[in-house]
Design a protein around this nucleic acid. Structure first.
Lengths: 315, 315
DNA sequence: TCAGCTAGGAAGCTGAACTTGATTTGCGTA
DNA sequence: TACGCAAATCAAGTTCAGCTTCCTAGCTGA
């Protein structure tokens, strides 16, 4: 019979593209992987690897086996999840990845709540952009990914992952504080704090934008254009704290997601837009772990955070 | 991670009901099974076996694991089948079980055809009644079962097995040969050879029946009753050859399936009934092996036999 | 009550799977 | 073209999982 361990090694080679990388991922030596695959080839009766330069390439038969290895591994994981859910035991290590803003604004409270509820649970956190965390999830390097989505749910190549939107994060327009000398060319009365504003009212302001290749940058740009103007971009900054600082200094206006100013005092005037803009925040898991109590608890906690966050609160 | 080998041992205990039996099935010692299950309990973190007299009983958690073990084993088997079908290799050992009549009438020609087509294929045959071969299939003691079905497809507890009817076997009424002195109380002109007859025409004959608990016996009895009479049963015989001999000796009439007189000279007058009666003959496999070339070839050969058999042929 | 059967623990053995270290082969670079 | 590095693989030695054998404990039926 085909050895499951060997199949998992093959799977890892397929994921990571080289024997060395697979070996590192499974924390054994490349030599061991090479030997195990030689055995698997005997078991299967087919060539599985062919040399391609100084690397290896998977044959068709190997790719077939990788697909099967995925379902086999999934079935084992499902058994473990069922077992854990039967015992209602929330123990072990939950590996979470979140995009940076979420890692700062959401995860601290969620992690403390989780470890208060389940003292035996260890939660580790990495901050990864959405796309990175999805591949990490597929690589089985993390158990739970928190991603942001700006456009409509694309999820074409979701690779069998399970998405669950647990909150929406409104996008706000940040205006320089009242007292600051606004360098905006147009003089205007500042709107009432917290009142919705139209982007087109700031067609003549300088704009502090996220980087062009970021989702938020593109969404902002598109929103300005569909409001009928091309923004005067004064600077492109990746880090929201920098954007906040520039707006606070009165150097322009900028779009900020709510989480970026959540639980953080900001000396700027924050306004929802009309029409409202928002990004969706979703949890992503591997479906076979859906019933794992560790996952169930974490998702519940995220839902709770999302519900609390939905209460309007403007600084 | 849960050890697959251990899960399979647990599965075998569940199937066979004792550690000893499971150990024999896997050809290791009971002690080894006991040790592996102790390890599996540690892996799972749950009690899996509880003593019940001098045997063991599976806990709920264990039964949950058995179900998962089934799907895992199925997934591995599917991988192997896919692998073999990719290579189009028909090698190995095909273990067949068939009910006795089929074992005599169908399997010899099918087996010779198979081993002619695929010299590397070994075919082994056991004769088992339908119910026995189904459990053997679930026990993974055979790869292919040939069963007969008299009633409408029940298949309630088919246990995830896959049935495929490949032929129908008509039931014939066997009458004593012309020249024999018929001890039947009623004098009548014998029907034209091969012509359909009505059971009610033989309400006054003696009947040679299959055993009462056999399917054929019950079907015959029911047919007689629905033709409006209770047959005078002269003897109940399990073996069709005995029934044939008795009819040949002129001691009565009897129902015989076509296969029982297939390719075998019979000195009796064989007649289809009006309305016609038949049993269905089906192949049964485990679904995960459906695409295995060994199975594919065997099923094709059975279909071929069924098609040839369907040509009317009466002795 | 005892003989027979099943489950399971202890000790020792075997082989599968790993590591280490040397070798081969391909690729980029001086 | 030669050199060095990187990746795979081979050979030899080592470790440990999983087996057997032998034994004990406990249930069951004669």
């Amino acid at each position: 019979m085909l050895g499951v361990w060997r199949l998992q090694l093959l799977r890892e080679i397929s994921r990571r593209g080289s024997i060395k990388a697979a070996a590192e991922a499974m924390s054994i030596t490349p030599s061991a992987v090479s030997q195990q695959l030689a055995i698997l080839e005997r078991e299967a009766g087919v060539e599985l690897l062919e040399k391609s330069g100084r690397r290896v390439r998977l044959t068709d038969a190997a790719q077939l086996l990788v697909r099967h290895a995925d379902t086999i591994t999934g079935a084992i994981a499902a058994a473990e999840a069922d077992l854990a859910s039967m015992q209602q035991l929330v123990i072990g290590t939950l590996r979470v990845a979140a995009f940076p803003t979420a890692a700062r604004a959401i995860l601290p409270s969620v992690m403390t709540a989780l470890s208060r509820q389940h003292p035996a649970l260890r939660v580790t956190l990495r901050d990864l952009e959405a796309a990175e965390s999805l591949t990490a999830l597929q690589m089985d390097e993390i158990d739970l990914a928190i991603v942001d989505e700006y456009d409509e749910p694309a999820r074409v190549s979701d690779g069998g992952l399970e998405f669950c939107e647990f909150m929406r994060d409104p996008l706000y327009l940040a205006l320089p504080p009242e007292e600051s000398s606004t360098p905006s060319p147009a003089l205007r009365a500042s709107p009432v704090a917290g009142a919705a504003v139209r982007l087109s009212d700031y067609r003549d302001s300088f704009w502090i934008m996220d980087t062009e290749d970021s989702h938020l940058g593109q969404v902002t740009l598109r929103a300005c254009r569909s409001s009928g103007f091309e923004p005067h971009v004064r600077s492109n900054c990746k880090d929201f704290s920098v954007i906040i600082a520039l707006v606070e200094a009165g150097l322009g206006v900028g779009m900020l997601p709510g989480l970026a100013i959540h639980d953080r005092p900001v000396r700027a005037s924050i306004h929802p837009t009309e029409p409202p803009l928002a990004r969706r925040i979703a949890s992503v898991i591997r479906p076979e772990r859906r019933s794992h109590p560790m996952i169930v608890s974490a998702l519940a906690e995220l839902e709770r955070f999302g519900a609390a966050y939905a209460q309007p609160r403007l600084s």
